[in-house]
Amino acid sequence: MNNLKFLFYGFGRKRLVTTIYLIQLTLAVTIGLQVYQVIDASIGHSVSLEGIRLGNAHMVINDLLNVHGASLSPLIGQVRWLILTYLLLAAFIHAGMWYTVIHRNERSGFWIGGSIYFGRCVLIGIIFLVLLLILSAIIWLPFLSKFGYWMEHLMSEAPLVWGIGALLFLWSVVCVHLFVASCYSRIYLIRDKMSVFRSVLKGIKTSVKKTIFLLPALMLVLFVLIVLYALHSFIDDWRILSSSIGIIVLFIIQQIIIWIKISLRLSTYHYLLTKAEGV
C-alpha cells in the first residue's frame, strides 16, 4: 500500500490543484457557453431538446449540424486556437507546479516558479514537442507509406492490425520516455539551475536510464486515468442522469474527474522528484 501513497500527494495540495483547475475551467467555459448559446439560438424552443436530454441525440444533432453547422464550425476553430494558447499557458502552469513541488512552497511558489521559469520552460516544451514530432514521423511514416501497398498485397489484414497495435505501443513508450525526460529537464532546470540545453540533455539521459524503473508507477497513473475515463463513459449513459439535477450531478462528476487528473499530475511530479534524489 505504501507504494500507492504517492498517488495521494496531489490531493493534499488542494489550493494549488484548485487554482490550476480554475484556470482550465475558465478557458473551457468560454467554449461551453458558446456551445450553449449556439444550440439555444438554433433549436432552443424545439421539443427535440427533450430528445438530447434523454440521450436520443443522433437525429437531433445531425439536423442541428446540417442546418446550423455554420454557427458551430467557428467553435471548432476556436478550440484549436485555445489548445495552442494553452500550450503556452501550460508552460507557466507546469513550471509553477514544479517550483512548488521542488521548493515545497504551495502558497506563492506556483506564481513565482511560473514567472521565473516560464520562458525556459516554453523552450523545453518546444524542444520536446519537436522531438515528439520527429520520433512520431520515424515510427509512423514508413508504415503509412506502405499501407496502400499492403492493403492490395497482404494475404490478410491481421498483420496490419497487429502492426498498428505494435506501433501504437512503441509510440506510447516513446511518449512516456519523452514525458519523463521533459519532467527531469525541469527538475534540473529549477532545482539544479542548469541551462535549458544541459537540463534537456541530462533529462533525456535520466529518462533512458530510469524510465524502466518508473514504469510501474507511471502505469498505475495511466490505469487510474483509464478507470476515470471508463467511469465517465459508464455514468454518462445513465438515464437517471438526464433529469435537470442529474445533468448538474454529471457536470460535478466531470469536474471532479478533471480535478483528480490535475492532482494526479502533481502527484506524478512529486514521485519523479523523489526518484530524482541523487541524480
Binding site: L49, R53, Q255
Partner: peptide, 15 residues
Amino acid sequence: PSKGGIWKYAFRSIY
C-alpha cells in the same frame, strides 16, 4: 423548452 439538453452538451463540451 427543456434547456437541460443544451446544458448537457455545454457541460460535455467544457469537459
